[in-house]
Design a protein around this nucleic acid. Sequence first.
DNA 1: CCATCTTAGTTCCCTTTGGATACCAGTATC
DNA 2: GATACTGGTATCCAAAGGGAACTAAGATGG
Lengths: 133, 133
Amino acid sequence: MPTTSCGRTHDVYDASCPCRHMLDLLANKWSALALGALEDGPRRFGALRTKLDGVSPKVLTATLRRLEEHGLIDRTVYPAVPLHVEYSLTPLGRDACEPLALLRRWVVDNIERFPEAAVPAGARATSRAASGA
Amino acid sequence: MPTTSCGRTHDVYDASCPCRHMLDLLANKWSALALGALEDGPRRFGALRTKLDGVSPKVLTATLRRLEEHGLIDRTVYPAVPLHVEYSLTPLGRDACEPLALLRRWVVDNIERFPEAAVPAGARATSRAASGA
DNA sequence: CCATCTTAGTTCCCTTTGGATACCAGTATC
DNA sequence: GATACTGGTATCCAAAGGGAACTAAGATGG
């Protein structure tokens, strides 16, 4: 059973352990993508919106706010006109990127092993990837 | 840009790439916990329900079905009485456990670094971990 | 002076998913 | 006949996800 420096036991399988809450935060499609998008340096809201193909502004805002609340990213407002807002990784966020990057990478590396039937139709035929980019 | 053996480009950031769908499946609290719970060998529905503290039977069923559809776990029914159903990892599922285990572990190892305010009240005070187990 | 463009969101509404609780089927046992 | 065990459904409600339109603030430009 994993124990931290302060001697308390932590377990993601325990619903009342803070770990569970953090796992819920990180084991999330948009969180994993947003943190990964910030690995190469700060990005603006619009850039993230473009990078995270398919995200709605509402969900992106909610995701970024949640990551900020949990100390994984910083939100910096430059009061220029037009408004300029930059999101960047905190040290904690940068560290969290490691396991998330491995997960994203594993998916890409092993996608061919998944049964065809499991992939929804829309993602097979009309995919950018399938058009031979 | 990552490329697979068949030469096609895959990118989790592309909403229409099958990768995105798979990331959505794996970057999920219950999936990450369920796969991890099967690492030490097959488990029955009831055992998973106990292990995955706080999961409702409906959600557990849905999670297991989804993992089964995507070829990550096998569902074996032993027509004994009372009914006996076992869930086990497929080779693909076993491989997927690696990055997920790293993620779960990272959370446990770094939980103390998260700001206190970010942890919901219920998880701090009345936690099993806090009671000095 | 008013319309337009930009960025970074918010608001609304609807659908999907998550979650809690109750209940069911099949059979063996008491 | 009542009870218990396993592995789920059924039902109901709340929360989150998602699409589209709209807002704010100020520069720009006719």
